[in-house]
């Protein structure tokens, strides 16, 4: 049994320790907001926070997450009101939407570590997340908007 703390809740799951965190979240805990995209850490659809870092859950063994704090898109905010989620809604960023859990989770680490990112900072943080629909111009705008809201203190 592996102890996982996901979105503030403790779980004890019966999983092969080699199983990627992605599949433990999706198939065992039914947290399907985190997506499978490539399985080889190329696309970023599976990004979750592990002790605050934007790890790729498709290559992170569930055993690595044992005893540490996992936050998924479902737990990023209580009411879908993280400044990034609100900015994504304001700018209508998603098209098919499949990659955006990962996009938002990656952007959340960027904004935490750099509240006022430049375009170059956004490139540095977000180039690991593929969007096949090509929403990149809107992702960039939404991150700038969330940063501006956060700076004004009305991010939520």
């Amino acid at each position: 049994m592996i102890s996982l703390n996901v979105n503030g809740e403790s779980h004890s799951i019966d999983a092969d320790p080699e199983m990627p965190l992605l599949w433990a979240l999706r198939d065992i805990l039914n947290l399907t907001g985190t997506k499978y995209g490539c399985g080889v850490a190329q696309c970023g659809a599976c990004v979750v926070h592990l002790d605050g870092e934007a790890v790729r859950s498709c290559v992170t063994k569930v055993s690595r997450a044992g005893g540490r704090k996992v936050i998924t898109i479902e737990g990023l905010s209580a009411n879908n009101d993280h400044p990034l989620q609100k900015a994504w809604q304001e700018i209508d960023v998603p098209q098919c939407g499949y990659c955006h859990s990962g996009q938002i989770m990656s952007a959340a680490v960027l904004l935490r570590e750099n509240p006022n990112p430049t375009d170059a900072d956004i490139d540095a943080a977000m180039s690991g997340n593929i969007c096949r629909c090509g929403t990149y111009p809107r992702i960039r705008k939404a991150i700038h908007l969330a940063a501006a809201w956060q700076a004004k203190g009305n991010g939520r």
Partner: peptide, 13 residues
């Protein structure tokens, strides 16, 4: 690495 692109986010032990 930086932000969401730190080495250990993909490269495991």
């Amino acid at each position: 690495g930086v932000y969401a692109m730190k080495c250990a986010n993909c490269h495991q032990a």
